[in-house]
Amino acid sequence: MHDDDSRGDDALRARLRAADPADALAPLPPTWLDHRMEQLMTDTSTATAPEAPTPARSRIPRWMPVAGAAAAVAIAAAIIAPLALGGTQPTVEQLAAPEGGGLASGSCLALDAATIAAQDQAFAATVLEIDGDTVVLEVTETFAGDVADRVEVPQVDATSSDYSGVPFAVGGEFLVSALDGTVTGCGVTGADSPELRAFYDEAFGG
């Protein structure tokens, strides 16, 4: 039985590997890396760079024309790319509400950073709109996992809410965590307060 499992896993891995988009990718020539490393190590903007700063000869930094040209290219690319690629919509994903609002289960442990660090997804978001029972969050910062630009979650009943007792309100800023596609209650998800932020910072080394 177990053998079947591992054989199946090997076959699965082999099939995934066969579809690896980078399997034909040639390594960069060593000269590219040498050049790049030299750039990095002589970059005077890094504190550890051993070289003395070059004296300022003019008020306009030498990189200014280059930056200007780069910006022009970027703007041109920004206009052409959407035309070629189409997609102008933000990515959206849905998360489920915690069961019984989280609190009703009565099984909440004391909040700590380890609980937050164990989440699949963790992010800061602003409530963009509330459409009936659906709350649309605009993600402003991602701490863990893969998070879309916008996340939709069901609004919870204010009385049974466990989002630190604060239901989602338009314009409000929240720290949200989710495990397996479900928003985590028990105080892990809540209004973006200095107290909750401190736990997130501790959990994700912010």
Binding site: A78, P82, L85, G87, T88, D149
Partner: peptide
Amino acid sequence: QRSERRRTRLVGRIIA
């Protein structure tokens, strides 16, 4: 990717 999407959205609005 985030800044890319943001820029694409903005350009999308301009084009609209």
